[in-house]
Design a binder for these strands. Structure first.
Length: 470
DNA sequence: TGAAATGTTGGGGCG
DNA sequence: ACGCCCCAACATTTC
């Protein structure tokens, strides 16, 4: 292999320099390397990245540019049709190889396949790698050769397979080609919101590889408590790695091996859910749009814009639900236990379609991920893989008392309730008038009355969902 | 990765 | 001392 042959690395959902197989493959050829990112939102079909993720992407690209600068390189930013832009870069730099790490969204698999074939026809060396998952969707099969629809047997099978490889360090340096292609400015991609609703995000998040490594380090130190405390949203016992993992800023292999060293089995199992979500999405590519279980195809979900808005804005009158929705709006993220609670509330208490919830999460979550979002919402909706049975209805008051007993979470996100004593915090409408007055709470004024009666809503949901026939 | 309804048990109060 | 009731605590079943 000639030392001067130039390699293009097409960055996508792998915005890191450590343990990046495509980047390492390029670097190991010994010649110049051209890192490229192409903004092409039209390729995502109905699932163009939402507002929160675009905010994240902007900052992540900035961070990647700095990481590459530390290796003596730069990042070429382009927008438009990926094949066209790649060809322009190849022509300009005289590159003879293109490497990338695979993506798995249904719309992108087809696109990438076409690009690979076209570039091969151009006479280039084209290779793709796994930079995102412990197991790629097709690596895991039932004994009869089909896809899994239930997590536990899927995970059992995964545990029988050889371990994910150890992560590899970043390349030492990336030589520049003699001709450097033009790059658009980061601002010109228009990723930042016009109205600055994301100001709360930067207090909580540092997008990019450095921020991800920092979160990983912090989490590993407390990971011994994960199994016991991961369901307590007022604690910081979960990893908060999801947006970093989604954007590929930390390597899943890195996370896996660090967690394993610390015997964080319960956490590794959660990483397994992520692989499972990709597995299901790959084998059932219609699931972002339609329920996996056919019998739910025509379910008469309610169209109730008023209640949907109340849910979105955190004004349902159920403190744990409202706290979660406000955390989401303010920080672009929500604790996983609370995601289940608010999802159950939308789908079962309000009988609004899981798809409406998925849409809202898609636009507001910095970790919005088509596989995880689809699996999670269909789970809550009872219509997906390993779905919650229709009769499993979360009681928002009991969930609040059980997982936020000291009220730290609700008090943080619903400060207008913060002076309510613990016994009434999760059901303010049941508090005696004197207690409410004392706490400065005026139901219907400073905090909403419940928009539905949970007991009645539960019965209606059981009746409606129970009539679904297979 | 639930909750409510129903059933069972066992201890304490009390006539 | 005994039976009866109450009810909390736990277990099981049902949705």
């Amino acid at each position: 292999m000639a030392d001067d042959s130039t390699s293009i690395v097409w960055f996508r959902q792998d915005l890191r320099v450590r343990d990046n197989p495509a980047l390492l493959a390029a670097a190991s050829r010994g010649g110049p390397v051209v890192p490229v990112y192409i903004w092409s939102p039209d390729d995502h079909g109905d699932w163009e990245p939402g507002g929160a993720r675009k905010w994240w992407l902007h900052h992540s690209l900035q961070s990647l540019r700095e990481s590459l600068a530390n290796l003596g390189s730069r990042l070429v930013l382009r927008q438009g049709d990926p094949l066209e832009e790649l060809r322009k870069v190849i022509r300009y730099t005289g590159g003879d190889a293109v490497f990338w790490n695979r993506r798995y969204e249904p719309d992108l698999i087809g696109r990438d396949k076409n690009i690979k074939q076209a570039l091969k026809n151009d006479g280039l060396d084209v290779k793709s790698f796994n930079g995102l998952l412990m197991r790629e969707p097709w690596e895991v099969q039932t004994n009869s050769g089909g896809p899994y629809k239930v997590f536990t047997p899927f995970w059992k099978m995964c545990l029988n397979l050889p371990e994910p490889e150890k992560p590899k360090p970043a390349p030492k340096r990336l030589p520049l080609p003699s001709r450097w292609p033009a790059s658009e400015s980061l601002d010109s991609l228009g990723l930042l919101p016009r109205i600055d609703w994301a100001s709360g995000f930067s207090e909580k998040w540092t997008p990019g590889e450095g921020g991800g490594q920092e979160k990983l380090r912090r989490f590993i130190n407390v990971s011994a408590d994960y199994a016991d405390r991961r369901d307590v949203p007022g604690d910081e016992a979960t990893s908060r790695l999801s947006p970093h993992l989604h954007h590929g800023e930390v390597s899943i292999r890195d996370v896996y091996h660090r967690a394993k060293q610390h015997h964080a089995q319960a956490y590794i199992r959660e990483l397994g859910w992520r692989d499972f979500a990709y597995h299901v999405l790959h084998h059932f590519p219609h699931t972002p749009q339609a329920p996996l279980q056919q019998k739910f195809a025509d379910f008469p979900w309610r169209d109730d814009p008023e209640r949907l808005t109340a849910w979105q804005r955190g004004r349902t009158g159920y403190p744990i639900v409202d706290a979660g929705m406000r955390e989401l709006w303010t920080t672009g993220w929500m604790h996983n236990r609370v995601r289940m609670i608010v999802a159950s509330f939308l789908v079962k208490d309000l009988l609004i379609s899981w798809a409406e919830g998925a849409r809202w999460f898609w636009d507001t979550l910095v970790d919005a991920d088509l596989a995880n979002n689809t699996l999670g919402w269909q789970w809550a909706g009872g219509c997906g893989a390993d779905a919650a049975p229709y009769f499993r209805v979360f009681n928002p008051v009991l969930q609040g008392k059980k997982f936020d007993g000291d009220g730290a979470y609700v008090r943080r996100w619903c400060p207008e309730l913060s002076r309510l004593p613990d016994p009434h915090l999760h059901a303010p409408w049941e508090a005696p008038p004197g207690v409410l007055r004392e706490a400065g709470v005026q139901l219907g004024e400073s905090y909403p009355e419940p928009i539905v009666n949970h007991q009645r809503a539960r019965e209606q949901a059981l009746e409606a969902l129970g009539s679904v026939k297979s």
